[in-house]
Amino acid sequence: MSTPATLSPAALHRLVREGRAPRLLDVRTPGEFRAAHIPGSTNVPLHTLRAHRAELVGHLDAETVLVCRSGQRAKEAERALADAGLPELHVLDGGIAAWETAGAPVERGPERWDMERQVRLVAGSVVLVTGVAGIVVPGAHLIGTAIGAGLTFAAIRNSCALGVLLSRLPYNRGPRTDLRTVIAELRSSR
């Protein structure tokens, strides 16, 4: 499978300023999207995109740019849409993090921790607590070892089961993404 075409934040910002903005599909969680997103982008969380890619393909084209926090989930979305028959999409290189670093405009909502920071907090807390508890409770430290093994596996596979679990918490969900609303928004944005 070919590597998805990337678009730099500077190139995308130039297209937006010139009035030639492509369709922007943000595949982060609704909570992440509400916290900060590129003006004019449509939120279709990765799990929704995967589940409904056949319905979405008819509303997307090669002018679509996929956006996430760093670019990784956007590449996963690109592969899912390519498998559904839409092979030539673009991924924002470096995601919204690079977009913000470039000084491009962002619409902000309520501040919240990004998923990576939440994973570090939960994993670090479990390791710390089980390490200390291991002094009193024999074998408790093995829970921390299991978390370390899980994080190692997540790094190798470039996925994160803990992140997926945390994304399901009410704090991260935000408003529910309704497929009919998404499709209506995609229709109206062209």
Rank of each mutant, 00 (worst) to 15 (best):
R187C: 03
T181P: 02
A77H: 06
A98W: 04
R34L: 05
R157V: 13
Q118W: 00
A149G: 15
V122M: 02
T29Q: 06
I183E: 00
L60W: 09
A154W: 06
T42Y: 03
T42S: 05
A5L: 13
C68D: 09
G163T: 08
A74I: 07
F153D: 04
A62Y: 06
V67D: 00
I38K: 00
R157S: 13
G131I: 14
H90N: 14
V16K: 05
I147P: 07
A146M: 11
R176L: 13
R28S: 07
R157I: 11
L56A: 08
G31Y: 00
A146H: 12
T48K: 12
V44G: 04
P105S: 14
A74D: 00
T101W: 08
V164L: 15
D178S: 10
R34K: 08
N158T: 15
F33T: 08
P175I: 15
I96H: 04
V106C: 04
A10I: 10
V119P: 00
A21Q: 05
I96D: 02
C68H: 06
I38R: 01
L89H: 07
P138F: 07
G174T: 11
V122R: 01
V136S: 05
T6R: 09
P9I: 13
L162D: 01
R117E: 00
A154I: 13
S125W: 04
T181K: 10
P4R: 06
D83M: 13
V129Y: 01
H52E: 10
A123C: 12
Q72E: 08
D114I: 12
D114M: 07
S167W: 09
V126Q: 03
A21F: 03
R14Q: 09
E76W: 13
R112E: 00
D178Q: 11
R180W: 02
A155H: 07
I135A: 14
H52K: 09
G40Y: 03
P4M: 12
V16P: 00
E107S: 15
G85I: 14
P110S: 13
A98G: 04
V132G: 05
E88T: 13
G58D: 09
V27P: 00
A10N: 08
E32H: 04
K75P: 01
R108V: 12
R168G: 11
G109L: 12
L162T: 09
G131R: 12
G150L: 14
N172H: 12
